[in-house]
């Protein structure tokens, strides 16, 4: 926390609003930590609404029938979501995640975990929450 405040002061203007002091890759497609899977996420609605529930469509080619778990947290604030999302397999490597909620402004990290019985791999995808809804 102290680090972030310091970064804001160094930035010279009134300071950043969120916690994007570090550069992050907000790409919607990422590879899992051991490299076996490519995970793509699409929020619904897009952009993610502040504080309201939303869903995530997750595509993982080749992951048909595997155990997939999805969660999200704000590492810089050290907390997770106030909800427990539910993952439903849609078929063809597609999964629907209902019950996501980002209740604070800033960087959220979505963790997609895939267990194929041999390895447990995770992909991390960053989402900057949230664009104001006009």
């Amino acid at each position: 926390m102290t680090r972030i405040v310091a970064a804001l002061i160094l930035a010279g203007c009134t300071g950043g609003g969120g916690d994007t002091a570090e550069e992050r890759d907000y790409g919607r497609t990422q590879t899992t930590d051991l490299g076996s899977w490519t995970v793509t996420i699409a929020p619904d609605p897009d952009p993610v609404p502040p504080v309201d529930l939303f869903a995530l469509d997750v595509t993982i080619p080749g992951a048909e029938g595997l155990f997939v778990d999805v969660d999200a947290d704000m590492p810089s604030h050290n907390h997770g979501m106030n909800t427990e999302p539910v993952v439903t397999e849609v078929g063809g490597g597609a999964f629907r995640v209902d019950g996501m909620q980002f209740h604070m402004t800033g960087d959220w990290r979505v963790t997609v975990a895939i267990d194929d019985g041999n390895t447990y791999e995770r992909a991390f995808l960053w989402i900057d929450c949230c664009e104001p809804i006009q």
């Binding site: 930035a11 009134t14 300071g15 950043g16 609003g17 969120g18 994007t20 402004t105 664009e131 104001p132």
Partner: peptide, 15 residues
Amino acid sequence: MGCGSSGFSEEQLDI
């Protein structure tokens, strides 16, 4: 992230 003439950053303007 720049500072607009108002002194608010882009991110702050969103907030």
